[in-house]
Amino acid sequence: MSAPISAGHLTPAEERIRSGTVTVTGPQGPPVPEGEPVPDWDYFTNLTATWPLNVDLPGVLQDCGLSPAAAVHCLVTWHSSSTNRRDNSSPARLVDGDNRLTVAIPGTEIGGVLTLTARMVLAAPDPAPISPLAALRPGAILWQARRRFTLEGSGSRFPVVATSFAESGLAEGRRSLWYLSCAPDLDGSDTGSIRLYLNTDHPAITTMLNQPEAETSRTLAEVLRHDVVRQLIQTALRCEDLQEEHDHGEGTLGELFINLIRRYFPDRSLSDLRSQHRNDPSELEAVIQGLDRVLA
């Protein structure tokens, strides 16, 4: 069970090569180190992977039985589990000391788990190998190592799209902040029935999207989140055929509504909430604000 694999040629000792922290970086975020999930990644986020390598090149060549003239390349390969797609950086000549392998990874081609593999390969047959056991073939792998990054976790994502209202004609093309579209079809899928449109014509929205860490952006995002909550709850209460004891089915809007209401109002019945919603909707809103701890 535990027999190792023999490649048929000499390979370097591990201590000849030191990998720095391998990272992937989106256009905005800080570099994410190996082993971490990549936050906020989606299909539309391109990544750059960086693999620092410190190499004792003479030692490597010696271990491999190669002459000092041998050409050794290094490259980094990426593979995505969901798309089963692979590509690599162009092979670069390995130098003694610090090497830095980078590869650009198109977001639209990846998903699931991203595996990075750094490799040292023999670029061309060594004209005068020192050992008869040295690698011969071009591309022969002398050393490799892998790192894995989780792109997609189990958390849910809300359907959000940033778009120009003026161009798409949403909200009459006005300079609104956002629009929560919800088709109250309880048997429809949850994420298929709702979608949040953010208006890129509005400077506050573009700031929020481009500088999410800014104070104003955080405040706006918080208000936005709350607005979505209250709109969803209100829509839920307006749905006459929403019933709390009823099984609305996995992944349906009905289930989402019931879960949301239970989360905010674990002790209150739907009919109770509905009557408050009819009689004094404004107070109900205030209650939701309080429960939601907006800006608190």
Binding site: P159, V160, V161, D185, S189, T191, G192, G251, T252
Partner: peptide, 11 residues
């Protein structure tokens, strides 16, 4: 089909 979903953040 009302039961379908979408990739959430697709433009």
């Amino acid at each position: 089909d009302a039961r379908t979903t979408w990739y959430p953040t697709a433009p």
